[in-house]
């Protein structure tokens, strides 16, 4: 099994972990003054959709055969990793100052960072392979 396959499996595992994270490290369950859920609820609803997409794209890295398709998929995985980090930021959607939300965001940020790094490494690996093929 080459490095590309190993990294693709790791990306898939990280994406699944990010999807299941709020279930095992839950965010707060409070409401705002007017009875609506707090912003951390909406952040993690968005995170769920993004990580769902990350799972599909990470799995596609194992299925795709052409270098161009692999380049595109790894680039999108990289972007999704960045989006995962950005969503809980106060200038995006944000989270509340509750300890539970901060804990979940801490793990989300670590997972998103790893996903982005893997996406970037896969991008470079595929680019290198493409260059070697051309030569």
């Amino acid at each position: 099994m080459n490095r590309y396959k190993i990294l693709s499996w790791i990306a898939l595992f990280i994406s699944i972990s990010l999807l299941l994270l709020p279930k095992y490290v839950p965010i707060c369950t409070g409401h705002t003054g007017d009875g609506n859920p707090m912003q951390c609820h909406y952040t993690y609803q968005a995170e769920f959709i993004i990580t769902l997409l990350a799972i599909i794209l990470s799995a596609s890295l194992l299925v795709l055969r052409t270098t161009e398709a692999r380049l595109l998929a790894s680039f999108v995985v990289f972007l999704l990793g960045i989006i995962v980090i950005i969503l809980p930021q106060p200038w995006a959607i944000g989270i509340c100052e509750n300890g539970a939300c901060l804990k979940t965001t801490f793990f989300t940020t670590i997972g998103g960072s790893i996903l982005a790094i893997i996406g970037l490494v896969l991008l470079l690996l595929t680019h290198k392979t493409q260059s070697e093929e051309v030569i």
Binding site: L19, P22, K23, P26, I27, T29, G30, H31, G35, P37, H41, Y44, Q45, F48, I49, L52
Partner: peptide, 17 residues
């Protein structure tokens, strides 16, 4: 995934107020 999200199975239920 969207069905799970719609039914709220992806998270701990919100507190009833």
């Amino acid at each position: 995934g969207i069905v799970i999200l719609y039914n709220g199975l992806n998270r701990v239920p919100l507190r009833q107020i």
